[in-house]
Design a protein around this nucleic acid. Structure first.
Length: 226
DNA sequence: GCATTAACCACAG
DNA sequence: CTGTGGTTAATGC
């Protein structure tokens, strides 16, 4: 844990950017900065939660143990808030968060966070906008997952990492095959097969977790057609 | 029927 | 942890 200074933080959220000097000071006094190594769990499903977490840097997977197996709900890249649904919606975490790479986060006490929401409407408004956008992407996600075939879902995932996470055509997947399966609701075997299919058709270059998009147009077609 | 899609199992690097 | 082959089940021409 380190000294924390919200006022001089360069990577504060849009919402926190609205807070005044006094408010940031309150936040400062009630937050803790914590860093996580790759693979470390940030919060655990089933355990008590009393913090909102602000991801300053890094990449995280949100995952939930379902009745049958583990599901990856989504991949979150900093900067972002983590745990608003799980902390405001319940006393107990409904899902877990695990760092996929070196991650820095601020743990903000829930009481303080609530207090800021009560007293600063603009701050609250920014948070609502944020959550609305999240819900919209969740809706899209849900529909895509339900209606697209696996090739489409796999193409979606590759494009997601390329566009939203790494902003490159070449990157290292932060997930192994079985985790990709948990993300797009299939089996690890099917993930393997589709990736080798894409490789054979020269859509992707695949070396372990290393991915390079070779035929982006085609990949986008597959994503669109399902 | 026949083709497609994808899950499950087994086995081998 | 991955890739592959065989098998099986469901669904849609």
């Amino acid at each position: 844990m380190e000294e924390i200074n919200c006022r001089s933080c360069i990577i504060k959220s849009t919402a926190a950017g609205i807070l005044g000097e006094k408010e940031l000071e309150i936040m400062e006094d009630n937050s803790a900065k914590v860093s996580f190594k790759k693979g470390e769990i940030i919060f655990r499903q089933g355990s008590f939660s009393s913090n909102i977490i602000y991801l300053r840097t890094g990449l995280v997977k949100l995952h939930m143990a379902g009745p049958q197996k583990e599901q990856i709900i989504k991949i979150v890249k900093a900067p972002a808030y983590l745990g608003i649904p799980t902390t405001f919606g319940d006393k107990i975490n409904n899902y877990s968060a695990t760092a996929l790479e070196e991650t820095n986060a601020c743990f903000i006490d829930i009481k303080t966070f609530k207090q800021l929401i009560y007293q600063n409407g603009e701050f609250a408004y920014e948070l609502i906008i944020n959550m609305c956008k999240n819900e919209l992407t969740n809706f899209h996600n849900w529909v895509n997952l339900s209606q697209k075939h696996l090739n489409g879902r796999m193409a979606d995932t590759v494009l997601f990492f390329s566009r939203d996470i790494y902003r490159k055509d070449e990157f290292e997947l932060p997930l192994r095959r079985s985790e990709l399966a948990d993300l797009i609701c299939t089996s690890r075997e099917t993930v393997s097969r589709i990736l080798t299919d894409f490789y054979k058709e020269k859509i992707l270059s695949v070396k372990g977790r290393g991915i390079k998009i070779l035929k982006k147009k085609l990949l986008e077609q597959i994503s669109k057609m399902g």
